[in-house]
Amino acid sequence: MITPLPDLLIAPIVRAALAEDLGRAGDLTSQACVPAEARLSVIWAARRPGVLAGLDCARLALAELAPEVGFIALADDGDTLSPGQVLARAEAPARAVLAAERTGLNLMGRLSGIATLTRAYVDAVAGTGVRITDTRKTTPGLRQLEKYAVRCGGGVNHRFGLDDAILIKDNHVAACGGVRPALERARATAGHLVKVEIEVDGLDQLAEALPLSPDVIMLDNFSLADLRKAVAMTAGRVTLEASGGVDLTTVRAIAETGVQVISVGALTHSAPGLDIGLDAA
C-alpha cells in the first residue's frame, strides 16, 4: 500500500495548473454551450495497461471547481491497471467536470507513466536485491509528485534537492582540485545526519575515495567489467550506486554485477504518459 501524498502538497500544483488552463476568462466553450444547471456523471478509465499514480490529482482538480462533488475512487495508486479498468467515478456540475478534465488527466497520465516505467525497471532486476532509484531530472514544479510516482512503481527516491545530502559530482571534484580535497571538506562540514556521496568515473578515483569513507559511491558510466571490479574492491564497505548507460536492455546485467543501487534518470525525464480517459457514464 502506497502512502498517499497529503492534499496540502498536491493542491497548490493542481490549482496552478487549473489557473494556467482557465486563463483570464475561464472555459469559454462550456460557458457558451453547456447550461449552467447541467450535471454530468463521468468515469475515469485506463486505456492502456500500466501502473496507477496521481488519482488524487483528478479528485482535487474537480474539487477546486465543485467543492461539493462526490468523487468515488475505485482503484489505488500503485495498482496494476488493465485496459478499460474504471479508476473512479463522479457526478458533478457539467461545467466543472469539463473545466477540470484536462488538468486532472494531464497530471494523472504523467504520473502513471512514470510509475509504469519504474515498475518495468523494478521487474527487470527482480531477485537481485538491487534498488531502482530516481534522480533530480524532474519536471520543474512537479518533483514531489514525480518522485511519489516512482514510489508507486516500486522504486525508491534519491535526494529530493540540493539540501538533502552532499553529492559530490565530477564538476565539484574539478572545482575542488580532486577527490581527496572534495571529500575531506565535505566530511569536515557535514552534519551527523547528512550522508556524503561522491561520483567517480574510474577505478583510480574509486581507490582514492575509499579510505575517506564516503557513505555512497556513484560509479558513473562504468563498464560491466569495471563494475564487478569495483564491487570486489569495496567488499561491502560502502554502498555502490551505478549510474549512466542504464536502460531496460542493460539494467539486469548491471544489477548482476553486485552493486546495491541503480539510478535511472529516464524514470522521470523520458517516461511516456499513460493513456487515461474521462468519459460520460
Rank of each mutant, 00 (worst) to 15 (best):
R185I: 00
L145R: 00
A225H: 15
V86C: 12
V259Y: 03
R143C: 02
D134A: 03
P93G: 15
E256F: 05
S30N: 09
V238Y: 08
G244P: 12
I262T: 02
L111A: 03
L267V: 01
A73H: 02
D123E: 11
A90R: 08
R15W: 01
S82I: 00
I276H: 10
V173W: 01
A182I: 00
L183K: 09
A11L: 12
A174V: 13
D226N: 15
G245V: 03
A92T: 04
A255Y: 06
A280Q: 14
I10Y: 08
S213V: 08
G141C: 04
T80A: 15
S243E: 12
D163T: 08
V86M: 07
C176K: 04
L87R: 02
V150N: 04
F222N: 10
L278W: 05
V51F: 06
T135S: 09
G236T: 09
L74R: 14
A46S: 13
M108K: 00
P181Y: 04
L227Q: 14
R59N: 05
S270P: 07
L212Y: 13
T268L: 07
V231N: 13
L81T: 03
P214V: 06
L193Y: 13
L60G: 06
H269F: 07
L240D: 06
A175S: 14
N106F: 12
A73I: 00
D77Y: 01
A90E: 03
V42T: 10
G177P: 12
L227I: 11
A88R: 02
G273L: 09
Y148A: 00
E146I: 00
S30E: 04
D204V: 07
T257P: 03
G273V: 10
Y148V: 00
R119G: 09
T257A: 06
L193Q: 14
R59V: 00
A63K: 11
I114N: 04
I2L: 15
L55A: 11
A266Y: 09
L227N: 15
V264P: 11
D247N: 15
D123V: 01
N171P: 13
G70R: 13
R187Q: 14
M218K: 12
S213N: 15
L5F: 10
D79W: 01
G50F: 04
H172Q: 08
A53D: 06
L81H: 02
G141T: 00
H158C: 02
P272K: 15
A242M: 09
L227S: 11
D76T: 08
R102Q: 14
T189W: 07
L240R: 05
V246N: 09
L81P: 06
A188D: 06
